[in-house]
Amino acid sequence: MSTATNPLARLRAPRALAEVLGTPGRTAGFLVSSGVVAFFYTLLLPFGYTQRFELANWGYLDAYLLAWAVVLGLAMGLVLSVQAYAMRRVAAARAASGAAGGVAFVASLLPSFLCCTPVIPSLLAFVGVSGVGLYTTTGALQHFFAVHQSEFLAASLLLLASCAGGGCARWQARSASSTTAAQWGRRRMKCQAWSPPAAATSSPLGRERPGPARRGRPAAQPRPEGPGTDKEPFGEQGTDAPATAASDRRRPAPG
């Protein structure tokens, strides 16, 4: 995530999370998705004990695994909420959080699914490893997954947290830069109100506005506010900037 190294963007992440969970409906969605994911984790994490997905797995659910199920459920629920929010707002953030969330989910389950199952020895036998090599390799691989479960779970949690927090910070940063652009646009409009056209086109303010998204467009004009103006999926055509209320108000009217 490009914003992970940006301290200002990191500071904006909590505000973005508040926006993601800002309505009762979104909060409920987060809680429901977290609960569902945590429920499945309570069945999936003890898979190594029973080799089955069934409620009997709860018999092997100790406090350690239960805690991980809850934490991972909350983290995955947050990522899903961020993802759902991003689907409406920022296409790029959607793609980023979706991929990382999937990787984190797979990583969290690797120890449960690759330790004590016939998967690894069967794969090794399939690719032609045999004899002493099969024993050595199978033991080493399955032992690795068996003893490093905590590290895998921690890594997946870190990945979930980073893709949720990083995703929020990313579009929050873009939202802020979009707002700044809108503020510059307002200033430019004031200039245009009393300056000759030639002076306006050569104004340094014009060059400071974001290039690709504004290139070839007329100067910003006030846009009538109305229902639905802040519900468009993208803030700007051809960019993935969010459609903040500020940027929407300053966007030129269609046509």
């Binding site: 004990y49 029973t50 330790c115 068996a146």
Partner: peptide
């Protein structure tokens, strides 16, 4: 069995 294996312990 293998003693470090969780399914063997269970």
């Amino acid at each position: 069995v293998t003693t470090w294996c969780s399914s063997c312990q269970a």
